[in-house]
Simulated scan of single mutants.
Amino acid sequence: MTAAARTASARRRGAAGITLLEVLVSVGILALIGTLIYGAFDGMSRARTGIARMSDRYHQGRGAVARISRELQAAFLSRHQPADRNAVVRLTAFTGEDSSTADRVDFTAFAHRRLLRNAHESDQCEIGFFAARDPERSDKLDLVRREAKHIDLEPTRGGVVNVLAEDIESFNVQYLDPVTGEWTDSWDSTQPAAQLDRLPAQVWVTLVLKGGPGDEPIKFETKVTIPMQVPIAFGVSN
């Protein structure tokens, strides 16, 4: 092979190779593309997480208000008591306490669901809705539901308490008095000076949750009509 041929062959081999600068440019482009792809997937993941969290908050609020409405509609009072007052072991009531942050309502209702076969239970129970501090976070207020499957002489105590909605901002309950036609912030069917043996015509429930879009609160509101306006008194002489 002549000297000219060897020189041409070396040039061809050199032209077919990749310089260090080209390698660095290629790596930089790949890194930029990888960064853009990661950012896109990370943004999609964050958006999906945020939408899922927001959906859970709305679902929790709607579920809480729906359950409160359903069980308020089953509220009742009864005048069926033993002739001997010392033998009284049950007290039906409807009480509502007003508070600046979260109100409380306790009542007897036909709302209990018997889950165990042959259980000595009926559909009568005591139910309460109120706010409680989260045991793990003192700054977090939860809406809880209390249910006692047996009615006793303390309609505002006892039973099992479960969280109904987490991290609430406020829980407000108002009552429409069928006698005066006005809304009131409290109710007590056990006191002669209040609304003795009477149920409200309607209950106005307002629940506000924290953590809405743009960190704004989420408000749920409904008015519940109570069908049973007078105590159960069939077979009871006046």
Rank of each mutant, 00 (worst) to 15 (best):
V144I: 10
D185Y: 05
Q191G: 03
R114A: 12
T222F: 02
N86E: 15
D139L: 00
V205R: 03
V230A: 14
D106T: 07
E154H: 10
G28K: 11
F110P: 00
S69V: 08
D142T: 02
V89P: 02
R104D: 08
T222D: 12
T2L: 08
G39T: 07
A64K: 03
H150I: 12
T101I: 15
A40H: 13
L141W: 09
V179E: 13
V205Q: 03
V88K: 14
A52P: 02
G158Y: 01
G181R: 11
P192F: 04
G159N: 05
R70K: 14
M228W: 10
D98L: 15
W183T: 12
T7S: 11
W204M: 07
M1T: 00
T95V: 15
F171R: 00
V224I: 09
D188A: 09
G28Q: 13
R113V: 08
D56V: 09
A75F: 06
R57P: 03
T95W: 02
T7L: 15
R85A: 13
V236G: 11
A83G: 15
R114Y: 01
G39E: 04
L176M: 05
D185G: 11
P192E: 08
R48H: 10
V88Y: 05
I29G: 07
L36I: 12
D139F: 01
L141N: 05
T156I: 01
A16P: 13
D84F: 03
G43N: 10
N172W: 04
L116D: 13
Q191H: 11
H112N: 15
V105P: 04
L199G: 09
V203P: 07
A93M: 09
T180H: 07
S170C: 03
R133Q: 11
T222I: 06
S78Q: 03
L32Q: 13
S45M: 10
S237W: 00
N172Y: 04
P200L: 06
D103Y: 14
G128E: 05
L143P: 13
R79Y: 09
A3M: 08
G61E: 07
A165C: 12
Q73V: 00
S99I: 03
A3Q: 07
A4W: 10
R85L: 11
R57V: 04
E22I: 00
A15C: 06
E221H: 07
T35I: 00
D152V: 01
S186A: 10
P178V: 06
K219I: 10
N118P: 05
T92C: 05
L24M: 15
D139C: 00
T2Y: 09
R104F: 02
A201Y: 09
R137C: 04
A193L: 12
